[in-house]
Nucleic acid binder design. Structure first.
Lengths: 105, 105
DNA sequence: GGATTATATGATTAATGAATCATATAATCA
DNA sequence: TGATTATATGATTCATTAATCATATAATCC
């Protein structure tokens, strides 16, 4: 695979690979939300959340639009949630592997 | 979602989110390979590849076994490849969005 | 046992990332 | 216009990461 494509893939993955950002994305599963809703919902610092959202925007994970004073955020591609769900499955598989090992003691 | 689960998800994603590691994983699509094959295949520094593989092992993405002097590496869960493919699709969607914008100029 | 091959690891450097505080900007409303 | 609300951003600090060189370990073969 092309070096540039790998870098782009890594960039998308990196944008996903952070707990606060995952928390924001999970909150956005129910659709578009205002930053002013996100901040209290995930119990974060306003400036920190703002930076995480602008990072995800640069990585094309989310898009924003102004609505008066507010900034509305939404996940651009629902496939992102499929990826998050796949990660959950991988984690579950890892844990069940662990359990299997434990049972064989 | 639980804070700890989010951290675990982020950890898996972080282990994926690096070009050299993606290159290694792509090379492992065809099955188990020896590190001595990986190094020339992806044209990397031996010590660097070694570190990346041990990182992916700690994140449970790959497993290794000794075969004489060699260390054989394989991807533990094929679902990993599904995730990489989903990322490709997300990237393609991003690009086609871009093209759509360009055409409307 | 000594040479060879394969891998791992300590130490270092340079880059990047996340969080925080203080402050700036920008839109709305009274 | 001045106050309020929502968001963004500069500066700073601390932690993490990737890469590299040199060297160590470990298995195999002669």
């Amino acid at each position: 695979m092309e070096e540039r494509v790998l870098e782009m893939k890594a960039e998308v993955l990196k944008a996903l690979a952070q707990p606060t950002r995952l928390k924001i994305l999970e909150f956005l599963r129910n659709g578009e939300r205002c930053i002013c809703e996100i901040v209290p919902a995930i119990n974060g610092e306003q400036s920190n959340i703002s930076r995480h959202i602008s990072l995800m925007q640069k990585s094309h994970l989310v898009s924003t639009r102004k609505d008066g004073v507010k900034v509305m955020v939404k996940v651009k591609d629902p496939k992102i949630f499929e990826i998050l769900d796949s990660i959950s499955i991988v984690l579950k598989n890892q844990v069940s592997e662990q359990s299997k090992l434990m049972r064989s003691l």
